[in-house]
Design a protein around this nucleic acid. Structure first.
Lengths: 188, 188
DNA sequence: TCCTTATTTGACTGATCGTTCCATAATTTG
DNA sequence: CAAATTATGGAACGATCAGTCAAATAAGGA
């Protein structure tokens, strides 16, 4: 056997997420990453391959963490609609930190198959969880039954992005909260 | 007097918009711009200063054009709510072309004062036009009077961004139309 | 026609890009 | 201790970056 890694891959990846989320991919240099991850240049390339693979890994990890947080919030509250509301409230509360998912979609769209697969995987997981809560809320009367649940779930997802773009544009927390409230109002 | 320009500045700017809107700022090279604008490199620098100023000029022009289109759609229809609906319908119809405004906000946030001023100028113009229609719609009964009109206007703006981000992520036209419909539903 | 003033063209700058190579040091297992 | 494996830092790679310089060209006004 040999010398074990001195740094934690996950910690390094978290640092990469931090860099990519507020600079994007193209504007981030390898030197910046070396500085931010606190590992040597060679260790970076040995561990993650190259800049693009590191980016993919960062987006993958971020998406998983972020989706986890969404799902946890969704389980909140006595009624299903409370869970949806809690999820949106969390988005509002954390909106000052740029979303790597939104940034990644805006920067690349669907032009990079490997990246798109990551987005879709996280998207499916979030969508089905929201869909589940929407349907439960419809049974409880928290969401109108006339609304197509699939569309409602997509609407909620889209409004998460809307809140985050608004935040990136400089909107206040109060204004973001109003966006969440009006989005929910559309489902009532 | 001396030799006149062989190219049209506005045409060149339109070409720059085209490049920036689907590559972003950082990923666009000066060489790419020279190729796309069909003018010499020196003409580019003489006319627009440098890459950043060209970008600012492109965003400025794009924002103005886009806001014009929004305002034109807003005037449509017998009722004010019809104008808002027409505006969203146009956004859905044109969503396959990436929005430079959204891209610019996601790439830079509010970190670049000169850029932020451009966004805010276009934002104010659009906001006040939407606000005007929202208030009219409230008098006509198309939008519930209990809703704060300022918040309603911001909600509509945010949902324009939502539709565009969803489109960039690969959503179908049908799904985008559903987003527009549900957004309007929140105001009824 | 000739001079003045711009525009165009293409070669060229130093800097930085992402990435690799290499030598050295460190640490664990056999 | 020796062998194996990994981390580190610096030097270097060719490519490309944004931006500049200077010569060539073209179009006014006199």
């Amino acid at each position: 056997m040999a010398r074990p890694k001195e740094f934690d891959t996950a910690t390094a990846l978290d640092a990469a997420i931090e860099v990519f989320r507020d600079k994007g991919y193209a504007a981030t240099s390898a030197s910046t990453l070396v500085g931010a991850l606190h590992i040597g240049r060679q260790s970076l390339y040995d561990t993650f391959g190259d800049k693009w693979r590191l980016y993919l890994e960062a987006v993958r990890r971020y998406s998983a963490q972020e989706t986890d947080a969404h799902l946890a919030a969704l389980k909140t509250g006595p009624r299903a609609i409370d869970g949806i509301e809690a999820m949106l409230a969390r988005v509002v509360a954390t909106a000052s930190e740029t979303c790597l998912g939104v940034g990644s979609i805006c920067e690349f769209g669907t032009t990079q198959p490997e990246l798109t697969k990551i987005h879709e995987a996280a998207g499916r997981r979030l969508h089905s969880a929201i869909l589940d809560r929407v349907q439960a809320a419809q049974k409880e009367g928290g969401i109108a039954s006339v609304i197509d649940p699939e569309q409602a779930a997509q609407f909620v997802t889209a409004n998460i992005a809307a809140i985050r773009v608004a935040a990136r544009a400089g909107s206040s927390g109060k204004d973001l909260a109003a966006l969440a409230r009006l989005a929910l109002r559309g489902l009532r």
